[in-house]
């Protein structure tokens, strides 16, 4: 006997993500899912963002990157609450892992939650966590052909940050062509060329983020 099913394989993840989202909304916490390949600059961006928002917004961080607990320590030094998720070697965060970390996150005391996803450009695209926006960091040394290799990631991002633009003089990376390629398949995307090292473009990114928060 054949049974028609037509159900999303990741439907269960989606349901948990929606519950997470309800919890965030009820605490008026705006949530950002930060994704990139390893070493593109997720932790650096989170640190720079926290510094710029000091005194303006109370920030919390969920650290899902397995590469090191040093990340969590560096963020902790900035005086913001940080919760490390033990992914057990998984290559992405999912809604359930996020949900189990939430009891340790002081949602009552924060307005912005930055989640550092596992360094990977494939699977984090499939697993929503309950975030308000998805931010993708693509760094210049990775090359400007990344959108062609990971179209889903670029298609779904609300913002793409081109990090390490301080290295542009040494690389073949066409910022305009790269931006145009992404905008071709993603009409809503904001593209910010930034450098976490020199601080270039960070103010523009943070001010956009601040606007998104106000919009809710």
């Amino acid at each position: 006997m054949e049974i028609k099913v037509v159900k999303d394989i990741l439907g269960a993840n989606e349901q948990i993500a929606q519950k997470n989202r309800q919890l965030f909304d009820s605490h008026h916490v705006f949530v950002v899912n930060v994704m990139s390949s390893p070493g593109a600059g997720k932790t650096s961006l989170i640190l720079e963002t926290i510094k710029r928002l000091k005194g303006k917004t109370r920030v919390g961080v969920v650290e899902g990157d397995i590469s090191s607990s040093l990340d969590a320590e560096a963020i902790g030094k900035e005086g913001v609450p940080v919760v490390q998720i033990n992914t057990g070697g998984e290559c992405h965060l999912d809604a359930n892992m996020t949900s189990s970390a939430l009891p340790s996150v002081p949602l009552k005391d924060i307005e912005l939650l930055l989640i550092e996803n596992v360094g990977n450009l494939v699977c984090p695209a499939e697993f929503t966590l309950g975030e308000n926006i998805r931010v993708l960091i693509s760094s210049t040394p990775e090359g400007d052909d990344k959108p062609f290799k990971y179209p889903l990631m670029f298609h779904q991002a609300d913002a793409v940050l081109i990090n390490k633009v301080d290295l542009l003089p040494y690389l073949k990376f066409d910022v305009d062509a790269f931006s145009k390629t992404i905008r071709g398949i993603n009409q809503k995307v904001k593209v910010f060329p930034i450098s976490c090292t020199t601080g270039e473009g960070i103010d523009q990114w943070v001010s956009w983020l601040f606007d998104q928060m106000k919009k809710g």
Binding site: M1, I3, K4, V5, V6, I9, P151, H155, T181, G184
Partner: peptide, 26 residues
């Protein structure tokens, strides 16, 4: 990623994101 017909580059993705169970035989 340009349109092969008009060379435009403003496109919408309409397929390729699927991930579902269509049916089962039991």
């Amino acid at each position: 990623w340009t349109c092969p017909y008009c060379k435009g580059n403003n496109i919408e993705i309409v397929g390729g994101k699927e991930l579902f169970v269509e049916s089962i035989e039991v």
